[in-house]
Design a protein around this nucleic acid. Sequence first.
DNA 1: GTCAAATATAATAAAATCTGTATATAACGT
DNA 2: ACGTTATATACAGATTTTATTATATTTGAC
Lengths: 102, 102
Amino acid sequence: MVMKQRELKPETLAKAASMLKAIAHPVRISIIRFLEHGKKKTVTEIHTNLGIEQAMASHHLVILKDRGVLASKREGKNTWYFLKHESLSYLLKCISDCCEEE
Amino acid sequence: MVMKQRELKPETLAKAASMLKAIAHPVRISIIRFLEHGKKKTVTEIHTNLGIEQAMASHHLVILKDRGVLASKREGKNTWYFLKHESLSYLLKCISDCCEEE
DNA sequence: GTCAAATATAATAAAATCTGTATATAACGT
DNA sequence: ACGTTATATACAGATTTTATTATATTTGAC
């Protein structure tokens, strides 16, 4: 018995594309890697560590949050950002493996 | 002993981003899913099955091939396209899981 | 060579993204 | 209220994507 692949609904497809598009940027990949393994970081920690402007960091973080990649929690003056799905680590590993093998 | 995360070289980062960007499109995700499990399909099969114009299909296929997602092989009048890395199936599964759980 | 089928390319305009700079808002301590 | 720190937003020009349509190329059959 052959299993027919389950079709993705157009909305799921669009959501997946939009999420992938959010991830598909060098700086944002770096941000995600910086947050792997459940780490929570502030905007300042992120922009300092990755060597990008504060406004840039904030901007990219908003994109990642809007598309459902990150979540955040405000605490006083700080906003802590973290991965919403730890499985994204796996996704990045998969892509970098694909890249390296050529 | 804590393992420090290996940094990605800027070029690898750029390559990964560009590959992800290629994947991050509803039609192109559909194409990749259509080619999962080692299937090889012609442009006609792809554009017919997915219900898109021939030129569109060809266009998207070129993008996916240029960025290293697909490979192709010409045989007579037909060009057969197929996944270059079967592990991309896993990547798509990961993303759609992330999408559905909200 | 001519025709038809299969695929690829070109040209265009509209839409979305990116980067950098400037500015605004929020929260805290005094 | 004022100053400072942390974060978020707005704006604008440059670049990149996207969808559409039309056209070109390649290959095989005759």
